[in-house]
């Protein structure tokens, strides 16, 4: 099994494609598996993950760590994650910079935090504990948001960069989420990208969203829009060869459609860095687990 690699473009491992993936390898460089979807005792999902992992690098992406929550960290969840990591040796493990519930209730949504020094300290301390438990860097993703808190004293990008530095964690930069939140809150998406520490960003997400008229909703159920492709190109220019993943979670299309969307990302990647992939300005993002 591969444990790391010079990853370029990947897609999410989704149950809609399980049958096809058992028949043929996907035309992508790597897969991202939602950790919680594989925290089970056995059955087809784990069988498929094992099958694709034989030949293809995998990363784990969680949705329930609640790193910004005020409930105690869920030790059972961390143990399950550690067990999964031990079995499948992902190139890295990511989750979201958010909170997902309180009083032991899980809302199953990625809820925004106030961007304050107090919250930064709180999250950095929890990240350190998770990293100790998993014995690896944690990768945290910026979420799409629809509200802000009046008492925030930092910008989101400033908070994320400071957290990466203070907690010694890595960043999953969701370019679509930057675009969605920039629209919803009226900030400059390119300034957000500029504020990202390039030595900390290890992965990019690209996804589709829905225009609701008053706001953009991060739906992951359609193609990446032209503006987000432009922002992606800008991001590669600024941050270098960051492994990129196409996310598609709702109304999941055939595998070939996702492969074609990955091809679009690969074309931009090659335009930025050259056909060989060696002509770019960025670092070679190769990460050991």
């Amino acid at each position: 099994m591969q444990t790391s690699g010079n990853l370029e473009i990947g897609i999410g491992l989704r149950s809609a494609h399980f049958g096809e993936l058992l028949e043929r390898p996907a035309r992508v460089g790597w897969f991202e598996a939602v950790s919680e979807n594989f925290m089970m005792d056995g059955g087809r999902p784990l069988h498929v993950l094992e099958h694709v992992r034989r030949d293809t690098p995998v990363v784990f992406h969680g949705v329930s760590m609640s790193i910004g929550g005020t409930d105690p960290l869920d030790d059972g969840h961390l143990s399950a994650l550690a067990d999964l990591a031990s079995r499948f040796e992902p190139a890295w493990i990511s989750d979201h910079l958010c909170w997902t519930g309180a009083r032991r209730h899980n809302l199953h949504d990625l809820l925004p935090l106030p961007w304050t020094e107090e919250v930064l300290e709180h999250v950095a301390e929890r990240v350190a504990r998770v990293q100790d438990r998993l014995a690896r860097h944690l990768v945290l993703e910026n979420v799409s948001s629809y509200l802000t808190y009046e008492h925030s004293t930092l910008g989101e990008a400033e908070f994320l960069a400071a957290l990466a530095h203070r907690a010694d964690c890595h960043i999953l930069l969701d370019v679509n989420n930057v675009y969605v939140s920039a629209y919803n809150h009226g900030f400059d998406a390119r300034a957000y990208i500029d504020a990202m520490p390039r030595d900390r960003v290890v992965q990019i997400h690209l996804a589709g969203h829905t225009d609701m008229g008053t706001h953009l909703l991060d739906t992951h159920d359609t193609f990446v829009c032209p503006d987000v492709w432009d922002l992606y190109r800008y991001t590669l220019d600024r941050l270098g060869r960051v492994p990129t993943l196409i996310e598609w979670d709702g109304n999941v299309p055939p595998l070939t459609t996702l492969e074609e969307e990955a091809d679009r990302a690969r074309t931009i990647w090659k335009n930025v860095f050259g056909e060989s992939g060696a002509g770019g300005i960025g670092d070679d993002h190769t990460f050991a687990a």
């Binding site: 929550g69 909170w99 309180a102 009083r103 209730h105 809302l107 809820l111 935090l113 107090e118 709180h122």
Partner: peptide, 14 residues
């Protein structure tokens, strides 16, 4: 506080 804010929102979002 962050804790009180999250408790209020958890109730509201449910």
């Amino acid at each position: 506080s962050l804790r009180d804010l999250q408790h209020e929102l958890e109730t509201l979002f449910s």
